[in-house]
Design a protein around this nucleic acid. Structure first.
Length: 203
DNA sequence: CCACGGATTGGCT
DNA sequence: GCCAATCCGTGGA
């Protein structure tokens, strides 16, 4: 695949309302460049976290060292560590000081599948079931794409991590549900995913 | 200072 | 469906 740098989403894309950005992220291509290799996944499932009104958001209780990136201006990657072993990656949205970010929950592998397989299973030849299992969960994405706390705060307009624009999906292609795996603000319908996409984490 | 739980995952029943 | 793995920030004593 050839990467068209002019297709990279500009920082203005991220500085808008979190739910607008969340829905528009679906179908976009997330690019992770390591050395000269590209790992690319199509974003198929996301969740919005808004610390102003959302108790489940890391930013709900205000700025700390851990959630600092979430309060920065839209257009950065917020990476956090959880359960003693997993990283999860978010797209920060809105203006400086707000505390809104979008958790990327699942991607469809597009490019660099062999390297993703090595990162996830320590082998490069994998079967269909294992391809589906590469990035159908937030921590799986980070393992497949080698994203760690070192990448926290990276600008999404950088040379190594960015998102390529793609045609906007129709509303009829987008499903909405409650978020997964949280204990607070459980009823907010802030999970967005592509209907009938087999790479979504849970139906 | 210690106990607890987390925006998860994978293995086992 | 249940639960251990495994680190670290948070909250109570």
């Amino acid at each position: 695949m050839t990467i068209d740098i002019h297709n990279k989403l500009p920082v203005e894309f991220y500085k808008r309302d979190i739910h607008t950005v969340a829905k528009e992220l679906l179908g976009k291509l997330f690019v992770r460049k390591i050395d000269d290799n590209y790992l690319i996944g199509k974003i198929v499932e996301v969740e919005a976290y808004d610390g102003r009104i959302d108790e489940a958001a890391h930013s709900f209780k205000g700025r700390t060292k851990r959630n600092e990136t979430m309060f920065q201006e839209g257009g950065r990657l917020y990476v956090y560590f959880t359960y003693g072993m997993h990283f999860c990656a978010n797209v920060v949205t809105g203006q400086e000081g707000i505390g809104t970010a979008i958790l990327m929950r699942a991607m469809e592998p597009i490019e660099g599948i062999e390297q993703m397989a090595i990162n996830r299973y320590n082998k490069k030849n994998i079967i269909n079931k294992e391809i589906i299992n590469l990035m159908n969960g937030p921590a799986k994405i980070c393992q497949a794409l080698s994203i760690t706390n070192k990448d926290n705060g990276t600008l999404l307009t950088s040379d190594t991590i960015f998102i390529l624009n793609q045609p906007k999906l129709k509303n009829s292609q987008i499903a909405i549900s409650k978020r997964i795996g949280i204990k607070k603000s459980v009823d907010l319908p802030w999970r967005y995913f592509i209907k009938d996409n087999i790479y979504v984490s849970k139906r």
